[in-house]
C-alpha cells in the first residue's frame, strides 16, 4: 500500500513536542559511571612498574621517579585515545578513569599535564 506523505502525522505530532536535542553546552549530558574519560593518576599508589607505559597504544604516559619510591606521571592528553588500557594494566590502581569528556584545548601545551606527588595531596601542573 502506497500512502503519499506517510510521515505527516508523525512530524505534526512532533512539531508540538520539545526538541530531542540537548542544548549543549548549556545542558551537558551525564556520562555513565564507567565512562572512559580523562585519566587521573594517584602518585601515592604508584610503584613505578611502568606497565602502563608499556601497554599504552598511544605513548601517552611517562612515569618518572622523583626521589625514593616516589613517582610522577606526565600525560600527553593530545595523544591519548582514551582506551583505558593503562587503567586495566596498572597492578596498583594508581590510574583511574573519570567522567570528564570536555577535553578540547586551543593550545596543545595545555594537554601535557604532570601529576606531582605532594605532601598534601596531588598537584596537577602543566608540563614544562
Amino acid at each position: 500500500m502506497k500512502i503519499p506523505g506517510k510521515m505527516a502525522k508523525e512530524v505534526l505530532r512532533h512539531s508540538l513536542k520539545p526538541p530531542a536535542t540537548l542544548n549543549y553546552p548549556y545542558v551537558k549530558p551525564e556520562m555513565p559511571d564507567n565512562f572512559r574519560g580523562k585519566i587521573v593518576f594517584d602518585p601515592v599508589r604508584c610503584i613505578g612498574c611502568r606497565m602502563c607505559v608499556k601497554d599504552c597504544p598511544a605513548l601517552a604516559i611517562e612515569i618518572a621517579a622523583v626521589g625514593d619510591k616516589k613517582f610522577e606521571a606526565r600525560f600527553y592528553l593530545d595523544r591519548c585515545i582514551y582506551c583505558a588500557q593503562c587503567v586495566d594494566s596498572c597492578p596498583k590502581d594508581a590510574l583511574l578513569n573519570t567522567k570528564e569528556y570536555e577535553l578540547a584545548q586551543i593550545d596543545r601545551q595545555n594537554h601535557r599535564i604532570t601529576f606531582h606527588a605532594h605532601a598534601d595531596g596531588v598537584v596537577v601542573d602543566p608540563a614544562p
Partner: peptide, 21 residues
C-alpha cells in the same frame, strides 16, 4: 553502548582472552 562499554564509539570491550567489562 556507552553504558556497557564506557564509550559511544570504539567500545574497547575486547581483550585477548575475553572481554574487559
Amino acid at each position: 553502548l556507552a553504558l556497557l562499554c564506557g564509550n559511544r564509539v570504539n567500545y574497547g570491550i575486547n581483550t585477548i582472552g575475553g572481554v574487559r567489562r
